[in-house]
Every structure is written in C-alpha cells, then in structure tokens.
C-alpha cells in the first residue's frame, strides 16, 4: 500500500461544530435507517402487501354478510371501510426497527455507536423516527389503494386522512419501541422475532370484524382490556363517522400513555446497557 499523509496531525482533535442533541442525532440515525429501508425493499414490501392481502380476503369472505345498506355500523360504506383500520394497524405491527437493531447488536455496529458521544436516547429514537416515516408512506399508499379498489371514502376528509395516517405511524413507533426493548434485553434475533408475535393477540382480541357491542361477552371483555381496541375504534371513526372527539381522545390517550411508558423503559434500558 502506498503510504499516505494526513493533512492534520492525528492528535489535533476535531472540535465539534454542532453540539450533540437527541434531536440532531436522532435525525442523523433516522436518515441512515430510511436509506437502509429503501435498499431492502424485500423487508418493506411485506408490511404493505400482507395487510392488503388480509383486507382483500376478509372483505371477500364477509362483505355479503354485512351489506352496507343493511348494516348500520358501516354508516353507508362498504365492509372494506370497516376492515381498513385493522389492516393499517397490522402494517404498523411488524416491528422492523427492532430486527434491524438486533442485527446491529449482533454485528457490533451498535457498540460502535455507543462509543460515540451521541445522546443515548437517539440510538432508540433514530430508528423509531425512520419507522414513523416508513409507516406514513406505507399507510398512505394503503389508504389510497383502498379508496380506489373498495371505493372507500374518508368521512373526516383530507384532514381526517392526515390524522389517520399519522395516528397509525405513531402507533408503529410505539410498537417498534417495545420490540426494540426486547432486542436490547435479549440481544437475540430469534427472541425478538418470537416476541413480535404479540401482535396476534393485540390485533385479533379487538373488534376487528364487528363493533365491540356485537362481540360475545368474553371477547368483548378481552377487547375492552386490549389498548389496541381504542386505536382501532379511533381510526375507524375517522373513516366511517368523521371527527368523533371522545373516540379520538381515547385512541390518542392510549398511544400517548404507551409512548411515555415505552420511552421511559427505553431510557432506562439504554442507560443501563452493559
């Protein structure tokens, strides 16, 4: 190898031009994670096509049971409009950020980041920010396809559409945040993948086929306990009814509380990571 000469002595430490902040560091790491997602479409596409597959199959199986003109809870729309929130929440529940994180832990890049003077929180938030951006894109495409294919219209209008997609994307951050906690705790891809199966009870112990008051009593109790129910009902209200203050407040309250819990546990976990 030809010897090279550095222009500056190695020990003249670089003075930081920007001070480390959780926001700046999160955006830097988030940008990298978004680039990573664009380069691995094979991991991004299932988050759209699997939920769309379920949407098509569920509507195909149940649409004749629930004709719009004879089903009051559809508010005059097709059954696809009722099913769409479940598919959107499914797309937000893949926890992709956690799988990338555990890969970094196993590969040593996470330690490389830990040896830099960045905010510890940014190591969590960077990937969650990317998850937010990815879910905004995926959910937007899903809603637009649903409008075109199933003739769904968003009763709450353009603003409601924005609120709907944003709510789903914030939930994706919360869910992925909890999955990241599993990654940090176990440092194992197998354990993280296994833990992501929690989305089954979270998504299916909900009023995903009929409203809560039409479920059997045990299912109604389970759905009432399940926090995802309130996010699903809030999303559904935006599609079928418009801006329903109380329903939306409950949905966002669940997201807010779980977000605070996830961030609190994440701070503790990353600060004690040894």
């Amino acid at each position: 190898m030809t010897p090279k000469t550095e222009t500056t002595p190695a020990t003249t430490a670089v003075e930081p031009e920007h001070h480390s902040s959780a926001l700046r560091d999160s955006l830097l790491l988030g940008g990298r994670a978004i680039r990573e997602a664009l380069r691995t479409p094979d991991s991004l596409l299932p988050t759209m096509f699997i939920p769309l597959f379920f949407l098509v199959v569920n509507v195909g199986q149940a649409a004749r049971i629930f004709p719009s003109e004879a089903t009051p809870f559809l508010e005059g729309q097709s059954y696809g409009a009722f099913q769409l929130p479940a598919s959107l929440l499914l797309s937000a529940s893949f926890g992709g950020a956690a799988l990338y994180l555990v890969e970094e832990i196993e590969g040593g890049y996470f330690d490389k980041l830990r040896a830099t003077p960045i905010s510890r929180m940014a190591m969590i938030l960077g990937r969650l920010y990317a998850e937010f951006v990815k879910t905004i894109a995926v959910a937007t495409v899903m809603v637009l396809l649903s409008v075109l294919v199933f003739g769904i219209h968003i009763e709450s209008g353009i603003l409601g559409f924005v609120v709907l997609v944003t709510m789903v994307a914030i939930w994706a951050m919360v869910f992925s945040g909890f999955m990241q906690l599993i990654s940090l705790k176990t440092r194992s891809a197998a354990a993280t993948q296994g833990a992501s199966m929690i989305f089954f009870p979270l998504l299916f112990l909900t009023p995903n086929f009929v409203p809560r008051n039409q479920l059997t009593r045990p299912m109604e109790i389970a759905a009432t306990i399940n926090p995802v129910t309130y996010i699903m009902e809030a999303a559904r209200s935006l599609i079928l009814e418009g801006f329903e203050g109380e329903t939306l407040a409950k949905g966002f309250a669940v997201i807010g509380v779980t977000m605070v819990l996830m961030l609190g546990l994440s701070v503790r976990m990353v600060n004690n990571y040894d």
Partner: peptide, 29 residues
C-alpha cells in the same frame, strides 16, 4: 477511537456513508 473485535460496520451503507455519518455523530458539519 474504538475498533472492536467484530468490525462494527453497517453492511447496507457504503464506506463513504459510514465515515460521513460517524463524523457527523462527532459533531461535524
């Protein structure tokens, strides 16, 4: 500066992207 047993690198980024990101994480413009 730290280089550990496992060459801790992000396989999906280019060499330049890794160095630019690392420099920015140390506060450079």
């Amino acid at each position: 500066g730290v280089a550990l047993q496992e060459a801790g690198l992000d396989p999906r980024q280019t060499a330049r992207e890794i160095l630019v990101l690392q420099a920015r994480l140390f506060g450079m413009s």
